[in-house]
Amino acid sequence: MKKKRIINFGEILLRLSPPNYSNLSKTNFFHAYYGGAEANVAASLSIFGHESIFVSAVPLNELGEGALGELRFHGVNPVVKREGNRLGVYYFQEGASEKPGKVVYDRESSSFSKLSRGTIDWQLIFKDADWFHWSGITPSLSQDLADLCEEALVAASNLGLTISVDLNYRPTLWNYGKNPVEVMPDLVKYSDLVLGGMDDSLICMGIDVTQTDTMEVVFDKWMKKYPKIKRIVSTQRYDANASSNMIGAVLWDGYTFLQSKKYKVSHIVDRIGAGDAFMAGIIHGLINWPNDNQKALDFALAASCLKHSIPGDFNLSTAQEVEALMNGASGGRVIR
């Protein structure tokens, strides 16, 4: 396996979920986990065997210590500012069958939200690094964080790092007076690998889509507008409800439109973090099989498939477990 030094930038959050599919408004108990999109990617990459660095900010209190401890437990090296008074929180009401899941964010005035341009030494952090991963969640939180994200991207680009982004459009987070299309294009232009879907085209990329446009046509438009992009990947869900999904994925490299195999994921334990598991999987796959996009795509989807069976935000599957599923070891049999 090829091992790389990968920098991940974002906010780690405390997640609180009512047990037994209870409603948030009716519960007296919560299961607690630590997670968040970029932290989930960082943890998975570390479990896959990479040197995974997570750049963030947490408060100097027990919750901050808990978040850092969780990252370190999974082999992630946190490089964080210890400032501010609170860790961001999100509440997740699990869905079941036709009842949808629901997320309520409580991250205003968190330690991470106080970061701004000039508060992080990117030259030092990117020293000897190979890859930088960010997501559209960070610039959705404030103009200061969007500016800081741009600062990081300029530094990473100047140093020649490979850059990946999960567009991660969350409409409830864009509350500071800017729309994604006013912010994201100036950030996405630095990226080599993009995870997103057709719905993101106008909202995040500033590119209109007609009713007759195929996914291949839309992604080709993205590459023409943003020439640094080398690959675009997208996950897909079919015949989906909250308990059972058919999942697949596609990859476009400007020449060939690839489709993954599909998995029927029934009895979903926890779908939060499945997209992040895919993101970590495609990064790992492209590092290890840079000339085999199909294998990288299949690895990423297998990683996402396994995450659906794991409670909490993090995908705890090893690269060997993902490859086993990718190579046909399915069926959930007991390994003895």
Score class of each variant (00 low, 15 high):
252 W>G: 04
217 V>S: 14
260 S>P: 09
233 V>H: 12
10 G>P: 11
34 Y>G: 04
316 L>M: 13
10 G>L: 09
205 M>K: 05
187 L>Q: 05
144 D>K: 14
60 L>P: 04
243 S>P: 00
18 P>Q: 07
132 F>R: 03
175 N>M: 10
257 F>G: 00
278 F>D: 04
336 R>I: 12
28 N>D: 14
254 G>V: 06
276 D>C: 06
178 K>Y: 13
283 I>G: 07
203 I>L: 14
247 I>Y: 05
276 D>A: 05
157 S>G: 04
323 E>G: 00
102 K>G: 11
243 S>R: 00
156 A>K: 01
43 A>W: 03
110 S>K: 11
228 K>V: 06
295 K>R: 15
13 L>E: 10
204 C>Q: 11
29 F>T: 14
152 A>L: 05
64 G>D: 10
15 R>H: 01
331 G>K: 08
253 D>W: 06
32 A>F: 00
189 K>G: 01
5 R>Y: 00
301 L>P: 09
236 Q>C: 05
19 P>T: 08
300 A>R: 12
51 E>A: 01
113 S>F: 07
140 S>Y: 02
271 R>H: 13
326 M>E: 14
100 P>V: 03
234 S>N: 12
240 A>I: 03
85 N>G: 01
59 P>V: 02
36 G>T: 12
135 S>V: 02
246 M>T: 15
18 P>L: 07
282 I>G: 09
277 A>Q: 05
135 S>N: 15
299 F>V: 07
157 S>T: 11
308 H>R: 11
190 Y>W: 05
110 S>M: 09
61 N>P: 03
36 G>P: 10
296 A>G: 03
237 R>C: 07
222 W>L: 10
150 E>D: 09
231 R>E: 11
86 R>E: 10
244 S>K: 14
110 S>N: 11
317 S>W: 07
249 A>D: 10
47 I>K: 14
8 N>T: 15
256 T>K: 14
196 G>N: 04
329 A>N: 14
103 V>K: 01
187 L>F: 08
64 G>C: 12
335 I>P: 00
25 S>K: 14
246 M>R: 15
24 L>T: 04
9 F>D: 06
197 G>K: 10
240 A>T: 10
235 T>I: 12
20 N>I: 04
90 Y>S: 06
83 E>A: 14
29 F>L: 13
192 D>P: 03
244 S>E: 12
107 R>I: 13
225 K>A: 13
137 I>W: 05
123 Q>W: 03
48 F>W: 00
211 Q>K: 14
30 F>W: 01
84 G>T: 02
305 C>D: 07
238 Y>Q: 13
94 E>M: 15
156 A>E: 02
154 V>G: 06
309 S>P: 00
328 G>D: 11
321 E>T: 06
335 I>M: 12
329 A>F: 10
303 A>Y: 05
249 A>P: 12
17 S>C: 01
201 S>H: 11
116 S>D: 08
277 A>Y: 09
10 G>Y: 11
83 E>Q: 15
30 F>N: 02
159 L>T: 03
223 M>I: 06
107 R>F: 05
40 N>E: 06
311 P>Y: 03
91 Y>M: 00
156 A>M: 02
208 D>Y: 06
283 I>W: 04
30 F>V: 02
194 V>C: 04
25 S>T: 14
2 K>L: 12
66 G>R: 11
291 N>R: 08
40 N>V: 01
58 V>Q: 09
42 A>P: 04
205 M>D: 01
95 G>I: 06
93 Q>S: 05
195 L>R: 08
103 V>P: 01
49 G>A: 04
